[in-house]
């Protein structure tokens, strides 16, 4: 396995993607110590300040002191720099949790559907139905029904991803179970559950990891879209989508309010996508038709 790992680590896309993600994670974790203020705090005196200006700033402790606003303030007088840094927490958290949940549930369903024909017929019809509702619409509808909190947003984004993972795993199982080494395992008396765990799963890991990164990227984007449309997390919670939703109002006079979170968001999703592409190229050269898993 070690030559595999070495090949992965030598890949430029993997290196770039993982470096950016590590830096972002560190920023998200250390946000309180990176010169930020409370991201929900508003100083009504300093509304709509331009990036880079130094102003007299009244902080959450009601002390007024000079402060350089790296990214300016929004129309409520909140410090955008602080909001962008704290926003990384929500995006990364949503991305990781959604991909882990969708992958776990999808893998379980996919293994069952791929190996048991009866489960397959029922489960896949349901998945077909679920997949016929465009992901963003389904997420929007679920948030509308469940109400917007971090948990409901994660659930609402994860549900539309599950059928995609299920389909992938199912198709992997169906092709792997035709391999002669599976028949060899059957003929030496290996029980079904062992075949699934010992032979099918290890041979499906690479495409599943790759799929996991794409789920993660899509989850981060959908969370941002929900917030941007004003349907996601409550607006006082700093998320990149929320910052941009507020930036819409003042876009013609202060377009940079849109660009700062936009750059962070794009860079994050780009890093995840590059990581996925790099993993795919190095681990699983055959699996390169993104989106074509039908």
């Amino acid at each position: 396995m070690s030559p595999n790992v070495r090949r992965v680590l030598k890949n430029g896309a993997v290196r770039f993607g993982s470096t950016v993600l590590i830096v972002l994670t560190v920023i998200a974790l250390l946000a309180p110590w990176l010169g930020t203020t409370d991201p929900a705090w508003l100083d009504a005196v300093n509304m709509n300040q331009k990036p880079g200006v130094t102003v007299d700033w009244t902080g959450p402790d009601n002390q007024t002191a000079p402060r350089t606003l790296l990214m300016g303030t929004d129309s409520f007088g909140r410090d955008i720099y602080s909001r962008v840094l704290y926003g990384a927490r929500v995006s990364l958290l949503v991305g990781v949790i959604v991909s882990v949940v969708a992958l776990a549930i999808g893998t379980l369903f996919g293994l069952l559907a791929g190996y048991f024909r009866r489960v397959d017929a029922v489960l896949m019809r349901f998945m077909d139905g679920l997949m016929s509702i465009p992901a963003i619409l389904l997420a929007i509808a679920l948030v509308a029904a469940l109400g917007a909190s971090l948990t409901t947003v994660i659930v609402a984004i994860a549900i539309p991803e599950i059928p995609r993972v299920t389909r992938l795993v199912r198709s992997l199982v169906l092709s792997i179970r035709e391999e002669p080494y599976i028949e060899a395992a059957i003929s030496v008396g290996t029980p079904v559950w062992k075949i699934l765990l010992r032979h099918v799963l290890p041979n499906s890991i690479a495409p599943m990891v790759v799929q996991g990164t794409y789920v993660c990227a899509s989850a981060i984007l959908i969370e941002a879209i929900l917030s941007f449309l004003g349907l996601g997390l409550p607006s006082e919670i700093p998320t990149w989508g929320n910052i941009m939703a507020e930036a819409r109002v003042v876009f013609s006079s202060a377009p940079y309010n849109m660009w700062f979170p936009g750059i962070f968001l794009t860079l994050t999703v780009l890093a995840v996508n590059l990581l996925g592409d790099g993993l795919r190229d190095t681990l699983d050269p055959k699996f390169n038709k993104r989106g074509a898993q039908r």
Partner: peptide
């Protein structure tokens, strides 16, 4: 089996 390249699990 016939195919020596597919009758052994590559990950085992």
């Amino acid at each position: 089996f016939q195919d020596p390249y597919r009758s052994l699990d590559p990950r085992q």
